[in-house]
C-alpha cells in the first residue's frame, strides 16, 4: 500500500517533467465562493391588526421571502500550462429556503420570533472537482 502511494507520488512529480500526455485535458480546479441570493422582503411586522392612535403601523423586519444558497465548491477551468486534469469527486446542493412571517398579535413582541423557515429544498446540484496530475491518466 505504502509502496503504491510512493510510486504514485513519484510519478506525479516526475512524469510532468518528462513531457506532456497526449490525452491531458490541462484543467485546474477553479475555487468558487459561496453564492447567496436573497429575494423579496416580507413584511414581517406580523401586525396586520395593529394601529396606534389610528395610524396603521407596518414596521418591517428584513425577512427574505426566499434564499438560495450555493455552497463554496471547486469548479473547473482550462489551464494550458497546467499538465493536470480534474474529475468530479463530490456534489454540492443548491438549496432554496422559503420564509414566512408568523403572525404575532403583540405590538412589542421581539422581532426575532416572527421570521420563520417555511420549507427548504434542494433545487439543483453542482459538481465539485479535484485536481490530479496528468501522469496519473491511463495512457
Amino acid at each position: 500500500m505504502l509502496h503504491g502511494i510512493l510510486v504514485a507520488t513519484a510519478a506525479a512529480f516526475l512524469l510532468p517533467l518528462s513531457g506532456s500526455h497526449d490525452n491531458c485535458p490541462h484543467d485546474v480546479v477553479d475555487p468558487q465562493g459561496t453564492d447567496i441570493q436573497t429575494e423579496g422582503d416580507l413584511n414581517c411586522g406580523g401586525m396586520a391588526q395593529v394601529s396606534v392612535a389610528g395610524v396603521q403601523v407596518n414596521m418591517q423586519a428584513t425577512c427574505p421571502a426566499l434564499v438560495i444558497v450555493t455552497p463554496a465548491r471547486d469548479g473547473t477551468k482550462d489551464s494550458p500550462d497546467s499538465n493536470t486534469y480534474t474529475v468530479p469527486t463530490s456534489t454540492v446542493n443548491v438549496v432554496q429556503t422559503k420564509f414566512t412571517c408568523a403572525t404575532t398579535w403583540f405590538l412589542l413582541f421581539p422581532v426575532g420570533s416572527v421570521c420563520k423557515e417555511r420549507s427548504s429544498d434542494t433545487v439543483n446540484t453542482l459538481p465539485s472537482y479535484s485536481q490530479f496530475p496528468c501522469s496519473m491518466l491511463p495512457k
Binding site: 392612535a53 395610524v55 403601523v57 414596521m59 405590538l107 412589542l108 413582541f109 421581539p110 422581532v111 426575532g112
Partner: peptide
C-alpha cells in the same frame, strides 16, 4: 436589546407615518 430596538423602531415609524 432586541426589544429596545423594536420599541425605538416602532416609535420612529409611527412618527414618520403620522
Amino acid at each position: 436589546g432586541t426589544a429596545r430596538r423594536r420599541v425605538l423602531g416602532l416609535v420612529l415609524e409611527l412618527g414618520l407615518r403620522v
